[in-house]
Nucleic acid binder design. Structure first.
Lengths: 65, 65
DNA sequence: ATCTCGTGTCAGGTTTACCTGACATTCGAG
DNA sequence: CTCGAATGTCAGGTAAACCTGACACGAGAT
């Protein structure tokens, strides 16, 4: 699922590890998300949206909309 | 994660199996969601939102909002 | 009373999200 | 040139989401 995670992260000058710590996940999880290897759980998607102050749909593209 | 799935489903007169077929998941998956045993994947959450014509956040409570 | 339909629940299996740890590469700072 | 920081990538593990199949139970219809 396409997403703007890498864009949002680097716009804030955060490293992958920074972001992982802020979200409570590992760096590997960040890598997998940024490189579209995984889709996040809904709970993690909510945490990401809260962290960046954007709705989930503007960060993770909804293929069923 | 608290959700309104059962409410939305029965409001439409659908069985758990009906809903599962419309969403492309098993009846067990529906049961697990309705009884809060599982959180959905983001992709499934998007399919559910599309099916009921509501945003994800009004169906699945966001504990990080 | 029986039959059916919807639901609840158990058992066991597969896939995927997420984990830790290790190492190679690149690149800017000193 | 060297060092450290950030990233990429691999290997192997755990946990949760999802699967199929089976059976018990209650409520309604016949």
């Amino acid at each position: 699922m396409k997403n703007r995670l890498k864009e949002l992260r680097s716009a804030r000058g955060w490293t992958q590890e920074d972001l992982g710590k802020r979200l409570g996940v590992s760096r590997q999880a960040i890598i997998a998300l940024e490189s579209d290897k995984h889709d996040p759980s809904l709970d993690l998607a909510y945490r990401i949206a809260a962290l960046f102050g954007e709705p989930v749909e503007t960060i993770f593209e909804n293929p069923h909309a």
